[in-house]
Design a protein around this nucleic acid. Structure first.
Length: 334
RNA sequence: GGCCAGAUAGCUCAGUUGGUAGAGCGUUCGACUGAAAAUCGAAAGGUCCGCGGUUCGAACCCGCGUCUGGCCA
């Protein structure tokens, strides 16, 4: 964590040493809004490199369905945290946090600007904000999952209420996934879990640029994106990976539905419709996640001068004259 | 033309001796600390095809009409 930006007034000749206190640039927002392209362009203009913050683009081989920029499309800009996981592995935010922060440190040391690009809210927060994850114990977790399956999630929630009332109050009874994790932490650390997310405290100073898009337009883009994925061979891609996909990868939008199709559960039209619906739902949730963060500076994804606007924001941030809580509530939903 | 089966939320459909309606999905809003493109919560939304009739009371029973699907001509 480096210090705050210098009050910029004084600097005219005084170049700061490479890598000092230049905020990381983060391009966030819902899927299908052009994050990858903008990120690439910014990296090019700023002499930077891209750090992926998209949980599913971590996976090797999941290219078409995650709309991953292919190597030949990257215009020579190095990309980090792409293709670092086998589809059989579970992703892990904590591991991501470690690795991506190492990337950030490396880039800073080389004086290269980091451009973080991604739509996974939790991953972005883990990378940029102050967040510490508790340890994990697969065996304890498996045990808890079995209990949940056998005795129902309600009883586990009761247990959590006894051991950690604060966490229990925050986690919904039916949310097995989170109840299990909370109990897992309590069991292995002997301390309460009681986690909550609302603080927005940068561990890594950043300018977050959000891509905003009116819903009708976004829905149309999503429709087109799904059509393109089909044309580019999503079904074949999934077929190749199908046997090896672990529980994280196989739940990704586009993959889950095609897997059901390959199992004969859905016909092709139904699968494709389900992918569209799923992508739309994903986009809505992403809007919620980022729209709530008061630090995001929103730009219209359709703005012809998008890149220049984004560069202005970066320049303002570098100069220390970016109004801190520029909370421009997204216009989504018009 | 005749016979049969349907018509209930944006969509697919439940609705059990007649007591003015529900689910799943979608939509909107929300939560989120090692699976997060996950997991979960809440809300909005209905002239029960139309018109008559029977009844204290009809989504439900009866008649007519309209539309849809199927079968027979």
């Amino acid at each position: 964590m480096s210090g705050a930006h210098e009050p910029a007034g004084a600097v005219s000749g005084a170049h700061e040493p490479a890598g000092a206190a230049r905020a990381v640039v983060a391009v966030v927002g819902p899927t299908a809004t052009g994050k990858s392209d903008l990120g690439l362009e910014l990296a090019l203009r700023l002499g930077g490199e891209v750090v992926n913050a998209d949980a599913m683009q971590l996976y090797r081989g999941m290219d078409v369905g995650t709309a991953k920029l292919r190597p030949h499309e990257r215009r020579g800009v190095p990309h980090h945290q792409l293709d670092v996981l086998d589809v059989g592995e579970d992703a892990s935010v904590a591991a991501y946090q470690r690795h991506a922060r190492t990337d950030l440190a490396d880039l800073a040391a080389r004086g290269a600007r980091a451009v973080v690009v991604g739509g996974s809210g939790l991953y972005l927060r883990a990378l940029l904000d102050h967040m510490e994850f508790q340890p994990v114990d697969e065996q304890v977790r498996a045990e808890l999952e079995r209990e949940a399956a056998e005795r129902g999630p309600g009883l586990l929630h009761d247990e959590l209420a006894r051991l950690d009332p604060v966490a229990a109050a925050r986690i919904d009874r039916a949310n097995t996934r989170r109840v299990v994790r909370a109990l897992e932490v309590v069991r292995i650390t002997g301390r309460p879990y009681s986690a909550s997310l609302p603080e927005h405290v940068y561990e890594v100073p950043a300018v977050q640029i959000g891509l905003d898009c009116a819903r009708p337009v976004l829905d149309e883009r999503i429709e087109r994106r799904v059509a393109r994925m089909w044309d580019e061979g999503l079904v074949a891609e999934v077929a190749v990976l199908a046997g090896r996909m672990g529980r994280t990868a196989r739940r990704a939008v586009g993959y889950a539905e095609v897997l059901r199709m390959l199992d004969g559960e859905l016909d092709e039209d139904a699968a494709r419709a389900a992918v569209t619906v799923g992508t739309r739902r994903l986009a809505r949730r992403q809007m919620g996640w980022f729209g709530r963060d008061p630090r995001v500076h929103w730009l219209d994804a359709a703005d012809p001068d998008l890149v220049d606007r984004a560069l202005e924001l970066v320049a303002a941030a570098d100069a220390g004259r970016l109004a801190e809580p520029t909370y421009v509530r997204r216009t989504l939903g018009s």
